[in-house]
Design a binder for these strands. Structure first.
Lengths: 211, 211
DNA sequence: ACACGTTTTAAACAAGTGTTTAAATGGCCG
DNA sequence: CGGCCATTTAAACACTTGTTTAAAACGTGT
């Protein structure tokens, strides 16, 4: 399967370079040289640079969103069976945990997670919209679920808090060892699980804050 | 003062285009045409595109950071006079409020705030580092002040929560009417002051969350 | 009015961009 | 083997990029 090899090699390389250098800063010549494929193969297999970006996003984000959707619906169903409102914490876990599970599941997955952590804040509308189109349907479901967990919050307030939560998540996803944190000389640092728990704590406290 | 006119016209245009299209997506030809100056004047007055970016950031971020630093120190001094620990809420206000005050102070200021809201998450290291170098000293002071307000938190936990808070702030700064929010049909939306209060509430609750 | 330093201008530069083309290669089946 | 399809390849295309150059224009102080 030379075709599959070529396509995946391009996708793998693209997701690494897009995550580390950015979409605009990555040229097809750098990309194809590093992937050891011909320059024209990107256009042949994907149709262009922008279509490649979309393919990179879809490859992992669609399955990831499906998992998140399932987990959210599972939390909702359990709440219905109990005839109670779903817990904010459970919904947050359903949305957040799959991302970190995926990040640690494969070597290249970390780059992809970094990429989507930054995509929401991309200055370039091309990249930002390509990501938003894939994530907004899930956002709407997540928002509707949180409405059930926090019925006392006005919708506009919940929406604002959800946006702030996504900003916190974004930070957690793309912040690495090379980041600003190294400028703070902290004696002990947090391991992965502790960081995830801190993030969930933070989001839950912010979402459930008194009005 | 033709010189000042040219320099400021370039700076104004650069901050608008960098904020709306991104640094890489903005070409000097687009920029200079829109600013109605000669193409070469960017290199003559600033030395190059990257130096222009730094000048754009410094022009407003240095004064803004000075204000934030003063307000933080003022909160700390008042706490010392009372012989009590500073309040998390007061420190947050000292850090956050000046940014929004600045945003509403001038027509072009909104673009600058959008830009710094995104700069922290920039995929491109050139832009990200140019911003981080200017903001990290203030971050360290802010972190030290928050340590006094939240002495029971391990430093690593506080640092993580501070990063998440900055993610929330970043969202609040660069999120506009054109953003994902428009996909949610919410009956009533929040005005500026309400959004700021919600952000402060969110950050405070997250920072002060029980361990 | 002249001269000097600063600023503006148009043109050219060298390099890099995404994309397209047409020929070459490859493998598979009749 | 020969024909056909998908794939790969190298080259060229048309265009844009940031930067540099040298001459022109400008403004100011004497």
């Amino acid at each position: 399967m030379t075709q599959t090899d070529t396509k995946t090699r391009i996708l793998d390389c693209a997701e690494r370079l897009f995550a580390r250098e950015g979409y605009h800063a990555t040229s097809l010549r750098t990309l194809t040289k590093e992937a050891e494929v011909n320059l024209a193969s990107v256009n042949y297999h994907f149709g262009g640079k922008e279509a490649l970006l979309q393919a990179v996003l879809e490859r992992h984000l669609l399955p990831l969103n499906a998992i998140r959707r399932d987990k959210i619906n599972s939390v909702l169903e359990q709440a219905r069976n109990r005839s109670t409102a779903p817990e904010t914490e459970e919904l947050l876990r359903a949305f957040v945990i799959p991302t970190f599970d995926f990040r640690d599941s494969a070597p290249g997955a970390r780059d992809f997670v970094t990429m989507i952590g930054r995509a929401m804040n991309e200055p370039d509308a091309t990249v930002r919209n390509a990501f938003l189109i894939l994530i907004i349907p899930l956002f709407k479901e997540f928002f509707a679920a949180l409405r059930l967990a926090l019925p006392q919050l006005p919708p506009a307030v919940l929406l604002a808090r959800l946006q702030y939560s996504m900003g916190a998540l974004s930070q957690a996803l793309h912040t690495g060892k090379d980041d600003a944190a190294q400028h703070f000389d902290i004696p002990v640092t947090l391991n992965n699980q502790e960081r995830i728990n801190q993030l969930l704590n933070f989001m839950q406290a912010g979402l459930e804050a008194p009005l």
